[in-house]
Design a protein around this nucleic acid. Structure first.
Lengths: 241, 241
DNA sequence: CGTATATTTGATATCAATCAATACTCGTGG
DNA sequence: CCACGAGTATTGATTGATATCAAATATACG
């Protein structure tokens, strides 16, 4: 019997809003899946047959322009949903940047479940609202922040996210490459690297190899980021009604 | 009796998914409201007591940084919802840029209605998904497009939106100022102006005073925008399941 | 009409992109 | 265990797109 032991306790996800029967019903229509690092398992424009709920690992969600320019719209982790579609085709591409495990739902079956369990719909609405607010923060970052502010905001948001998931907020783990960070923040690899170096020189951070950052002066980092409200997750109702 | 005669027929909104009884129930908890141009009726951080559904006019939704930098995250029109909150306070500010009429819902009452009419929840989920996809397109624009591409994309998206609302797609109406456009596209007033002038010089557009643009060469504009998929609105289920 | 506001246009500055090496990391096999 | 190599990151020099600063027009509104 498939329960949700793999859904991390603090993660804001579908499972923790359902009772045992409902979980069983949910489990009956989902299958576990695993992707190697580097696997692109959702391609923008392809038929959107499945919906995924990550249980471990990190995924980059991105859109490409015709000439290859890439904008990463988010890094997805355990608890996050993937597979938003527009007119039956995926609205973005998704690539595993670490090995990933997830639950796969087939759309027709999920459709039925939605009618059976309105709770799930509410939960999804809450998740969508959270994503929407994160998207708005990212628009502020991309439209109006300097490279320095972007990097500081990024580190803080990764740290907050780790804490929310019950992990230490420091040091910050960076499973993605500098290029991925650049594609997420609307910068280039070189600018990301230079900015890290600069913050290191000011003793605000310490680089732990290529995939870790130790925050040495949190106050300074918050100051640099331009202290917008730190992100938080609430019950769906908080956002809508 | 309050019906939805003011909800524009082609607009993707709550009312057209409900039957007469449900509409009446909805009407019973909402009140009409009007705002003059220039009125800021939602302030980021203020207690989020109300939710608004626009019936006419245009509203800019924005976030401010501490030093006054502004990012407009969207222009809202008839059918759109306003009042997203985070922990009981509004997540953004909203200012009418033309005279605006809207329906106001008080949260506690709306909360009850949600439990009564799950349809509304599904409709809201669909709206949220559409907004999320628009937000992702905007991230691509802000993170990776040139000023020229941003202006072209903006004009096309306003045109599409007008068509979807049953209005002519050309000429494009621009109720907002150059400064608003700049704050939406992550540019400055001057760059917006220069880019309009440039496109006019290439006979791609024709400026009709300060608040109108005639698209003279649609193909060229699409080409400049970098032809991502044109936006479209679908049934909520299309996006989720 | 005249005044305030919004827009356009011009000159210059600047931040980040680009182009170009160099250095580091990490996995692999000798 | 170390050397190699491919990918990844850093650093440097220069360019370039857009911001900034500064007038000059145009538009809208009382």
């Amino acid at each position: 019997m498939h329960t949700c032991e793999h859904c991390e306790a603090r993660s804001f996800n579908m499972c923790n809003a359902l009772d045992a029967d409902e979980l069983a019903r949910l489990a009956s229509i989902m299958s576990d899946q695993r992707f190697e690092a580097g696997t692109t398992f959702i391609e923008e424009g392809a038929p959107a047959d499945d919906l995924f709920n990550l249980t471990s690992g990190t995924v980059k969600v991105f859109k490409l322009l015709a000439d290859g320019r890439c904008q990463i719209t988010g890094f997805m982790m355990a608890g996050d949903f993937l597979g938003l579609s527009r007119g039956g085709t995926y609205a973005y591409s998704a690539t595993a940047i670490t090995p990933v495990t997830c639950c796969r739902f087939q759309r027709p079956q999920l459709r039925g479940l939605f009618n059976e369990l309105p709770k799930i719909e509410r939960q999804m609405l809450g998740l969508a609202m959270n994503e929407l607010m994160a998207a708005q923060d990212q628009m502020v970052l991309l439209g109006r922040k300097t490279a320095r502010e972007r990097i500081a905001s990024f580190l803080l948001s990764l740290s907050d996210r780790a804490v929310r998931r019950g992990r230490p907020g420091n040091p910050v783990e960076l499973p993605m490459t500098r290029g991925d960070i650049a594609d997420y923040l609307g910068l280039t690899t070189e600018t990301v690297s230079r900015t890290f170096t600069q913050l290191k020189g000011e003793a605000v951070i310490l680089l732990k190899g290529n995939h870790g950052v130790d925050i040495q002066d949190l106050d300074a980092l918050v100051e640099i980021a331009g202290q917008e409200d730190r992100e938080a997750c609430f019950h769906p109702f908080d956002q809508i009604a």
